[in-house]
Computed example of a mutant assay.
Amino acid sequence: MRRTPLPLALAACAALLAACGLKPASAFIPSIEPGTIKPIDGLKDAKIKVTSKEFTEQIVLGKIAVLALTAAGANAVDHTNVQGSVTARKSITGGDNDLMWEYTGTGWITYLGETDPIPDPAEQFEAVRKADLQKNRIAWLAPPAPLNNTYTIAVSPANQKKYGLAKLSDMSKVPVPQRTFCAEPEFFSRNDGLRGMLDKYGLKYGSTVPSRNVMQMASGVIYNAASAGRCTFGEVTETDGRIQALDLKVLADDKKFFPNYNPAITVREPVLREHPELTEVFAKISPKLTTQVMRDLNSKVDVDGNDPVFVARDWLKSQGFIK
Rank of each mutant, 00 (worst) to 15 (best):
P39I: 04
I40R: 13
G42I: 04
G42H: 02
L43I: 03
L43F: 05
K44I: 15
K44E: 09
D45A: 10
D45T: 13
D45H: 07
A46N: 10
K47P: 12
K49Q: 14
K49G: 08
K49F: 11
V50N: 10
V50A: 08
T51C: 15
T51R: 13
T51F: 12
E54A: 06
E54N: 03
F55S: 05
E57Y: 02
E57Q: 15
Q58W: 05
Q58G: 11
Q58D: 09
Q58M: 14
I59R: 03
V60P: 14
V60N: 01
V60M: 11
L61C: 03
G62C: 12
K63H: 12
K63R: 12
I64Q: 01
A65K: 04
A65F: 05
L67S: 11
L69N: 01
L69K: 09
T70A: 12
A71S: 02
A71N: 11
A72Y: 13
G73W: 07
A74Y: 12
N75C: 14
N75V: 11
N75Q: 13
N75D: 14
A76M: 11
A76L: 08
V77P: 10
H79D: 02
N81Y: 09
V82I: 15
V82Q: 04
Q83H: 14
Q83F: 15
G84P: 13
G84R: 06
G84C: 06
S85M: 11
S85H: 15
S85K: 09
V86W: 08
V86R: 15
T87P: 09
T87D: 12
A88D: 04
R89Q: 10
K90D: 10
S91V: 08
S91M: 05
S91K: 05
T93A: 01
G94V: 00
G94K: 04
G94T: 06
D96C: 07
D96Q: 12
D96N: 15
N97Y: 03
N97S: 10
N97G: 03
N97T: 09
M100A: 14
W101R: 04
E102L: 05
Y103N: 01
Y103R: 00
Y103W: 03
T104S: 13
T104C: 11
T106C: 00
T106M: 01
G107F: 06
G107T: 11
G107H: 00
I109H: 09
Y111K: 08
L112Y: 10
L112T: 12
G113I: 09
G113Y: 10
E114H: 07
T115L: 06
T115A: 02
T115G: 06
P117Y: 05
P117T: 05
P117R: 05
P117M: 07
